[in-house]
Amino acid sequence: MDGPNTTTDNARAGEAGVIACWSCKGPVAQITPLCETCGAVQPPGQLDHYKRLGLAVTFDIHVGELDQLYFDLQRRLHPDRFVTRSPQEKAISQLQATAINDAYETLKDPFKRADYLVHLRGMDVLPEGCNLVNDQELLMESMELREALSDAETVAEIDALSMRANDDIKLCIEQLSTLFNNDDIEGACKLTTRLKYLQKLAEETCIHRKKLI
């Protein structure tokens, strides 16, 4: 086998954060989407969503900045840029664009972002296969709101509920920001579950409202 493919060299390369470009075979940093030497698009690899988009790992995201970083990456890596290239480059650019979309979709939405950030910090909001919430207070609140929603008969009543849910969502996001900034991951975890319930409720008020009109 030739040099760069031996195990020790791979290990060294991994340690250095350098991989071989599939096209020109030269070194390329693992987080670089386009080879600096030959310009070939590189496979997306395993990056966290923040690193992929070039954002600091924090809950407080400026949506305008997120959009700009997202657009800049897609401008360079979207499959539309590779239509006349080799099949391999087309396929890799699709993987890149897919990974960028995934990162963007996750970080754009406050709930998904909180859920992801909790996960990055080593906890899980709702572990896989577990849909039970062990939070009496939250369960009571959610039951009460749901009851109010099913009892609501007029648009005004529903609008009041929807406004309350949306106010709660805003407050919840503000509190989440504080908790993350204070590294209170356990608290953030709990509050993320609440945010999920509130978003669901807000959605249901919308559906309910449409039925009434």
Partner: peptide, 11 residues
């Protein structure tokens, strides 16, 4: 061989 040299230097 050229690729090896480049990788080596890069790493």
């Amino acid at each position: 061989a050229f690729a090896e040299k480049r990788m080596d230097r890069g790493i």
